[in-house]
Design a protein around this nucleic acid. Sequence first.
RNA 1: GGUCCCGUAGCUCAGCGGAUAGAGCAGUAGCCUUCUAAGCUAUUGGUCGCAGGUUCGAUUCCUGCCGGGAUCACCA
Length: 581
Amino acid sequence: MDVFAIFSTRVAEALKALYPELPPEVLARFVVEPPRDAGHGDLSTNAAMVVAKPLGKSPREVATAIVAKFADDKDVASAEVAGPGFINFRLAEPIWFEVLRSIGAEGASYGRSDIGKGAAVNIEYVSANPTGPMHVGHTRGAVFGDALASLMAFTGYNVTREYYINDAGSQVDTLARSAFLRYREALGETVEIPKGFYPGDYLIPVGQKLAEEFAGTLLDKHEAEWLPIVKDRTLAAMLALIKDDLAKLNIHHDVFFSERTLHGQGGDVDLTLAWLRDEGMIYEGRLEPPKGKTPDDWEDREQTLFRASQFGDDVDRPLVKSDGSYTYFAADIAYHRNKYLRGFKHMINVLGADHSGYIKRLEAAVSAVSLGEADIDVRICQLVRLMKNGEPFKMSKRSGDLVTLADVVEEVGVDATRFMLLYRRNDAAMDFDFALVKEQTRDNPVFYVQYAHARTRSVFRIAERELPGFDLSPESLWTADVSLLSSPAELELIRMLAQWPRTVAAAASAHEPHRIAFYLYEAAAAFHGLWAKGKEDTSLRFVNADEPKVTAARLVLVDAVRQVLVNGLGILGVSAPEELS
RNA sequence: GGUCCCGUAGCUCAGCGGAUAGAGCAGUAGCCUUCUAAGCUAUUGGUCGCAGGUUCGAUUCCUGCCGGGAUCACCA
């Protein structure tokens, strides 16, 4: 259960009863939230201030009227008007115990909601070029997209995790030619990898496999014959490589969508452009060179343009290159029309910072192909600077030997990598310090949170040891009389746990998984604090053999903490270890 | 020059239109005979880049500047 949602409803009902003339949009504007200063109470609402102006009344007058409506509410210990017109509620203890019991009842579902109402959402992330192993620069977007997908699924969206394979451009021809050189090498030739080709070692096994499969038969063929064959084999190998890298971070996509399938006679790109033409969204025209920076090879020519500027973009965008082939963007419009026709009215794209200039174009495309029916939210992940002991980490200059995603995971581990990347807003640049991330101290939030979880488990191990015969099964434990929890610190912790559902809901609707990470850190801090109180005063310990009933109640609280940490870490894709070694 | 992102404590960063702007690190002062000190407690530290505007109320929204970063037809 979510006390904030419950009181939001009750306040709304009070307002409706008092002022039936209030329009729904005004009613939708107030919030019930924890006050910034805990001294102000448990819940706080700005309802009176939001509503006062349309009513032509003073905020405090409205607030007083609302407060009166709660006089008989058994869950409210006190309600007062404060400051400019806030209403601060202090809740009666029983409702906190109810919240606590609901955590046990809901278990892994605690915090789940139906905000999404089953709506289909397509989340496209990673979409790295299939020309080699995943680079470290892809890591942030990969982790962000994956956590966001889990978060949306947790709040009732029907999520599809999608990867767009850019396998149609000239770069994959270059890739195939590079692999062909490795094939000749595997057949015994000594080859030089010329400049402009992909020099990485990862193509060596591809060449060897080609040699095994075809022996020398490809050597006699013209490029036009062998290129499609080699390209197929190479792309398949690259995709396997990429899936393997992603699996190291526990990332799995539902759909791998190939750009190539959009091209060709009568393909999606053709169809989409024909459709856009019918709708009058395409014309032949000229573009101005970008202001203040004319490219050296700028050529003023008439080209086929999409009316992106009608949909909020700065300029219209070309769809056909000077050699007659489609631009990347033309295919991307077709791709997003394809998404829309597959039933997605909500799309999220996770892109790197170097694509920030692409956002408006993409929004224009989605708006155009869906005739305004679908929306897209483009989330940009800013650059990650690798550091070691406060110094920028030098990447090798030799191309083909850049720092890979696999290197990072091997160096710092999945959990630390994921948590650290999610412990930042996605749109802020960040430093990623290898030394710090590996450190197991409070400086490192992932260990701090995992340690809290391990401690909840350790309490149960101790209870088993010190209270033999005590039934610790959930069915029995959760029937304990939790009203025996009486210390302020214990109630404080329950209040913290009560905020979990609204935290999840807010994070999901803002598309901001980092809020989950910050919440977990705070919840862990509250738990560590309570733990330490037992150090100073043994009567406050969780396990106390002389007080079995109090112990049972406290174990319920500890188990609730465990549950919330497990649910939260689950969304982030970070493990919740039984103990730290 | 256009567009986008960032600017909050010495450092790294949270902050959902609300009340006296918060954490961690660093600094200072404490806490280990028993639930993991991988931790806890207290404390120092701020013209929220600057200037306007919107309103009952702005760190938050809008505009303009100033810094830092990314990007800028025909690459993908």
